[in-house]
């Protein structure tokens, strides 16, 4: 993925988050979807902007930590 494609992907994911929020959807599904989109954006930033696409093992470690953090957020977010 080129830098420009990564940027376009980030724009698409950001637009999806905003559309989802504007739809009025709430509840657990909303929490999971919004946090999944955030995770997608974070993955693109780590892989392309920060260059971890050239270090697959380290990228996998960051992705795992990111997923665990987002699961904690999702559980706490859905519990409210």
């Amino acid at each position: 993925m080129t830098l420009t494609r990564a940027w376009l992907m980030l724009l698409v994911l950001s637009a999806a988050s905003t559309t989802l929020a504007a739809s009025g959807m709430r509840g657990t599904v909303f929490v999971v979807l919004v946090l999944s989109l955030a995770g997608g954006k974070a993955h693109v930033i780590l892989a392309r902007y920060l260059g971890l696409s050239t270090a697959p093992s380290i990228r996998a470690g960051f992705d795992l930590a990111l997923i665990l953090m987002l699961i904690v957020f999702a559980v706490l977010g859905a519990a409210a």
Binding site: L10, S17, L20, A21, F30, V31, V34, L35, L37, A38, K41, A42, I45, L46, Y49, L50, M69, F73, G77, A80
Partner: peptide, 18 residues
């Protein structure tokens, strides 16, 4: 700068959307 970007994409949904 990308770290600042990364933090924001995690902060934004939690504080503004959930």
């Amino acid at each position: 700068w990308h770290m600042v970007d990364l933090v924001w994409v995690l902060l934004f949904p939690v504080v503004y959307l959930l």
